[in-house]
Design a protein around this nucleic acid. Structure first.
Lengths: 336, 336
DNA sequence: ATGAAAGCGCTAACAG
DNA sequence: CTGTTAGCGCTTTCAT
């Protein structure tokens, strides 16, 4: 390994000078800088980040803590974080929380051992108190995809109520009046918010959704399928179906088609996420885009600001809006 | 920050003793260990990995270098690496190569700056010479999803020839004799290998695929769609279609269905990868499973072995086999 | 503008 | 079994 001392010796200067040119900081004579630079290249020197982090007590590294690396969500988060990190010359680490509370804390600690205080936490599990405590100790902690009131300025989240509202409003605009909803278990705040938004939009239009038209299941393709079957079997009437997410929308779409319904001629369906699947399924799914990449990017910028120029951050919230992506699963009843 | 010295002082022992109990290495009295342990917990001490890495000149960290974090492939790689890393108490970093040669080297260097010599490289770009040079300098470099002859014992790759062969053999077994193939551009070694395997199996059965029945396009959903259209339009006959991967198989399946063909009654289709999509599309896709997670897991174990007990590794190859996943897109013509 | 010196928190011989 | 000592490679005052 070639160290800063080696370079200094060869270049005939002191280690501090080499350090200055490496970091591009401090005053160094133009000529001297050029010479040192050339020696650096020649010798193939690169800095030892561990030594640097040790002495400067900071890490220029952002860590992602998330329950599941295999999920498509993680990919989007990772690419958003990586993009922002790269722009700031930060490295990125990742740490798996396995979807368990203890593992989450452990994952965070493993990042802190590296002196990493820029942490993007994707957590549905930890209690608000835990999060508050964490935030107190970790300057750069930012929570993504969750809103914690007391930590509002450090949460980057999606307006699920607005998302639900927008999906319903779109259907309303297309002339639909009879709705069904496939929602999710109660301990899912996102699902609750979306449902709330949906109902708000619909009641504002002077309509309502009968409770029989709302089926609540755990999110999965199979459950989307079963939920749609149940809806049909129970004999409730609807021309438009709003699903919690794309996967369930697709499950429902498949079930309905198997039952002889045409999508969207007989039933319109709208999903949520705009995952890759929405472009694969038939018909292509109209859905609400969840801007995960952008949110992760923003969360990372925020985290870095929090640790480098806290004053500049301000006491604002970081609320993102989903946007509608029109494809082929919704029928325009007005035109028809 | 609470350091090893702080703990030592409070516990009334020397820093080295604390270090020993933290690492669980070396000889420490039972009583003494317990006492130090309790002080550690009490004070909330955790080791500074940077300091540790600096002095011990090694990093206990594995880095992933891959072109695209947003790809589903990356998710599987990440989760495989993370699982193996966790088992060995290693951390994981990731570095984006943006699919460009220079960025790839840069990504690798950024890992090396951390003293990380366990690198899982997912590269289709760098030349074999570059890779060889890299391998020389980085003990723990392992290449995933690519075969470099001179680095065979450090490549973890998939037998694409066998995969192609297996898919064709399956179709043969199901009584198909007329095949079409949607393959990919020439600079795609995987695609070439799969095609080779397909042809081998078919010629071994005394059959052959007319060149008009093979269409070569760049991999994408839309191109899969177009390729199938082109096949039909050109009037070639086939009862079975083999696609380079799931996405193209699905594109083709959609095109064929739009053209009025029933899958699998009129045309059978087989994909490759066993991505999530294969379970979403209609009909569900029969496909060859690409065991990415397992391969990434193995690659990581291999990398760690390479840096910790090189002797034990041996001069073997690390070739994985795809496996068939039967779903609903292939018709059994023998039964019919 | 440049150099000397101190030390970040830890491990690893080496003594005892 | 436990303590002492000497750095790992770097940044950062403080001199010059």
């Amino acid at each position: 390994m070639v160290t800063i001392k080696d370079v200094a010796r060869v270049a005939g200067v002191s280690p501090s000078t080499v350090s200055r040119v490496v970091r591009g900081a401090g005053k160094v004579g133009k000529k001297c800088r050029a010479h040192v630079q050339s020696v650096i290249v020649e010798m193939g020197y690169y800095p030892n980040i561990n030594a640097r982090a040790l002495v400067s007590q900071k890490a220029e590294m952002v860590g992602i803590v998330t329950p599941n690396f295999a999920s498509p969500f993680f990919g989007s988060i990772a690419s958003g974080v990586a993009a922002a990190a790269k722009a700031a010359n930060y490295k990125v680490m990742m740490s798996n929380s396995s979807g368990e509370v203890d593992a989450e804390i452990e994952a965070i600690n493993s990042l802190r051992e590296h002196g990493c205080s820029n942490i993007i936490l994707h957590s549905k599990l930890s209690s608000e108190e835990t999060l508050e405590k964490l935030a107190l100790n970790i300057d750069g902690l930012v929570i993504i995809n969750r809103q914690v009131d007391s930590l509002a300025e450090r949460c980057v989240w999606l307006d699920n109520v607005a998302g639900g509202r927008m999906s319903a409003e779109y259907l309303l605009k297309k002339g639909h009046t009879k709705f069904a909803v496939i929602a999710c278990d109660r301990d899912n705040q996102d699902a609750e918010d979306r449902l709330f938004g949906i109902q708000k939009a619909i009641s504002r239009a002077g309509l309502s959704i009968p409770t029989e038209n709302i089926v609540i299941v755990r999110p999965s393709l199979a459950n989307g399928y079963k939920a749609a079957e149940a809806l049909v079997k129970s004999g409730v009437e609807f021309t438009a179906l709003i699903a919690y997410n794309d996967v369930m929308a697709i499950g429902a779409s498949n079930a309905l088609q198997d039952l002889g319904y045409r999508i969207p001629q007989d039933v319109s369906i709208i999903g949520f996420d705009d995952s890759l699947l929405a472009q694969i399924c038939r018909p292509n799914l109209t859905t609400m885009l969840y801007p995960v990449h952008d949110m992760a990017f923003h969360a990372t910028e925020l985290s870095i600001q929090l640790t480098t120029q806290k004053e500049a951050v301000g006491n604002r919230t970081h609320l993102f809006m989903p946007t509608l992506v029109e494809r082929d699963s919704v029928l325009d009843m007005v035109k028809v």
